[in-house]
């Protein structure tokens, strides 16, 4: 039973190679709403299983989780398809849930951490759907010069990516800070691993963004998102920041 629980947890809070199940499913899902729902719901069974497990997380699982996070973070560096990138970042960030449970053993912190990544990822999935609607794909190289052509969409994409890669005031920043602070004394190598993963996210995020946003405008001009939709995203980002502040109060 224990082994089955661990395998299930390894699927929903993905450990390599079990993360391939989520990524395969995510890449085959084309509907934006379904993708967002998947990003929000997929890790929850994993959170529940880890929270109810009587024994703590062994160091072996901790190392495995860090390896998975690092592997997917590293692979994301060269990804040029926004959809694939979202999947890799989700896999990389959720696997850190094992580390959080290993160093804090607080189910509430685990749930907050998973949501800290799922929420901006879901938002980003919606924005990527806007890109795909216009360019028929969200692939760097096919899409470029978005900052010139659709400035409102570009700003929303930038903020969403910043939220995903754990930039300040967004929940992921405080969640990562809390995990590093808790890991540093108990498992110092895990703390170093965590900050390496964080660096890889920044590298991949900035690389992908600048390949899509920068450059001359493509031949065919597409419409930008409307002011109303842009306003809605601004509201959602403000809510995300408020969630971040709440995360800081609870986790730090």
């Amino acid at each position: 039973m224990q082994a089955l629980n661990l395998i299930l947890a390894g699927i929903f809070l993905p450990l390599f190679p079990l993360g391939m199940i989520f990524n395969g499913l995510f890449q085959h899902t084309r509907n934006a709403w379904l993708r967002a729902a998947l990003l929000l719901l997929w890790p929850l069974p994993g959170v529940w299983i880890l929270s109810t497990m009587p024994a703590g997380i062994s160091n072996g699982f901790l190392i495995w989780a860090l390896f998975s996070a690092m592997l997917y973070g590293f692979r994301a560096v060269v990804v040029r398809d926004f959809g694939v990138w979202i999947g890799f970042l989700a896999t990389s960030s959720w696997s850190l849930g094992w580390v959080t449970m290993g160093v804090t053993a607080k189910p509430h912190d685990l749930l907050l951490q998973v949501l800290a990544f799922s929420l901006p990822l879901a938002l980003l999935a919606m924005l990527v759907a806007e890109l795909e609607r216009r360019y028929e794909s969200a692939y760097a190289g096919v899409v470029s010069g978005v900052a010139q052509a659709q400035p409102r969409l570009a700003v929303a994409l930038v903020v969403a990516v910043l939220a995903v890669i754990g930039s300040p005031l967004f929940p992921a920043f405080f969640s990562m800070l809390s995990t590093v602070a808790n890991a540093v004394n108990r498992v110092p190598t895990a703390a170093v691993g965590l900050i390496t993963v964080w660096l890889l996210w920044s590298w991949s995020g900035a690389r992908l963004l600048q390949e899509m946003l920068v450059g001359p405008v493509a031949g065919v001009r597409h419409r930008d998102i409307s002011r109303t939709i842009a306003g809605l995203y601004v509201l959602l980002f403000i809510l995300l920041v408020i969630t971040g502040l709440y995360t800081a109060e609870v986790m730090l």
């Binding site: 010069g145 900052a147 010139q148 570009a154 900050i195 964080w198 660096l199 920044s202 590298w203 900035a206 690389r207 600048q210 946003l213 920068v214 450059g215 001359p216």
Partner: peptide, 22 residues
């Protein structure tokens, strides 16, 4: 946002700064 070289070097700055943040 039209200049790729500007972003290329901005990225160098960003990644070095991130290295320093950690």
């Amino acid at each position: 946002t039209r200049s790729r070289p500007a972003y290329r070097y901005a990225f160098w700055t960003w990644i070095t700064y991130r290295l320093g943040d950690l």
